[in-house]
Amino acid sequence: MAVGVIVLTWTAVQMTVSIAIAEEKIVLRCAPFYTTKVSISDVVAVSMAPDTSLADGYGLRLVRAKTRGLIVGWPAITLETKNRRWIISTAQAEKVVRTMIKLRLSEQGCYSKKRKRRNHDESPP
């Protein structure tokens, strides 16, 4: 029994959450147990969430209908897609939010460093 508790505790402590961008997908991983991919075009909103702690649970959490969490403590973000809401722990929450907002705007064609400026004073031909 004690060995089981130690193994379970060790496994929980070793869990990590990562967020990566691969091609047109956001890869959400709660290692070593869970990985999913979200299409960047499916993201409708991203924002800061309240910090998470062990009291919120640990690992993949089914928070409520259509809301899942990848929680290991730390600050967190909320990632909303067309079908689901995610609460994701990340040590660099503000940076992740900024990056995802830029990705989403870029996907919509609203953000580009090389974007041509349009002169709004021109009348159409």
Rank of each mutant, 00 (worst) to 15 (best):
P125S: 09
A55L: 05
L54A: 04
A22I: 04
W74E: 03
P50R: 12
A22P: 01
A22C: 03
S47Y: 10
A20K: 09
I6M: 14
V44F: 04
V63A: 02
I26E: 00
S112T: 04
S112F: 07
T99S: 11
M100A: 01
A45R: 12
F33C: 00
Q92Y: 14
V3H: 15
T35R: 09
K102G: 04
C30A: 13
V44Q: 11
A49L: 05
Y111Q: 08
T9S: 12
S112C: 10
A12Y: 05
T81Q: 01
A76I: 06
A91G: 10
T16H: 04
V27Q: 05
L28G: 03
P32F: 09
C110D: 15
T67V: 14
A12K: 11
V72I: 14
V43L: 08
V43K: 06
V43T: 03
D121V: 02
G57W: 11
D56C: 00
E94D: 14
S53P: 05
S53N: 13
K25R: 06
D56Y: 07
G69P: 05
Y111R: 04
E80K: 14
R84Q: 15
V5T: 09
V43S: 07
V5R: 09
M1G: 15
N119R: 01
T36R: 13
Q92C: 12
R115H: 09
K82P: 08
S106P: 04
I71M: 04
N83G: 14
N83C: 06
I6C: 14
R117K: 11
S112A: 15
P75W: 01
S106R: 15
I71P: 02
D56R: 08
E24N: 14
K114D: 15
E24H: 10
I101P: 00
I77W: 01
T78N: 06
D42A: 05
W10I: 11
I40L: 10
K82A: 13
A76L: 03
R61C: 07
R104P: 01
I40K: 02
Y111N: 11
V46K: 07
S39H: 05
A12C: 07
I26P: 00
S18G: 06
K116V: 10
K114L: 13
R29V: 05
A93P: 05
Y111W: 15
Q92D: 15
V17W: 06
